[in-house]
């Protein structure tokens, strides 16, 4: 039994205490955090700067959509 085995066993026992439903919400939670981060990005960071941009050229919308799809998928499975 080495120090590395001891660390591994301690972490394993710690994570075994976490119910799978909580683990699932941890995964979904980081998608939610990313959505909040994307929403607060400045428009200058998410739209083309060389011309007047159309609404669909704002990358925020598509990033938001991709993350929402992830939340639905992780909600189902």
């Amino acid at each position: 039994m080495t120090f590395l085995h001891w660390i591994g066993d301690a972490l394993r026992q710690l994570f075994e205490q976490v119910p799978l439903s909580v683990a699932k919400w941890l995964l979904i939670g980081q998608f939610l955090a990313l959505i909040f981060w994307v929403v607060q990005l400045r428009s200058s960071e998410t739209t083309p700067q060389d011309h007047q941009s159309k609404w669909y050229e704002d990358l925020k919308i598509w990033a938001w959509l991709a993350l929402m799809m992830q939340i639905v998928i992780y909600g189902i499975f």
Partner: peptide, 12 residues
């Protein structure tokens, strides 16, 4: 989860 968050953070 191995690609979508990383691509969005990486992309921005």
């Amino acid at each position: 989860i191995g690609c979508v968050p990383a691509m969005i953070v990486g992309g921005f």
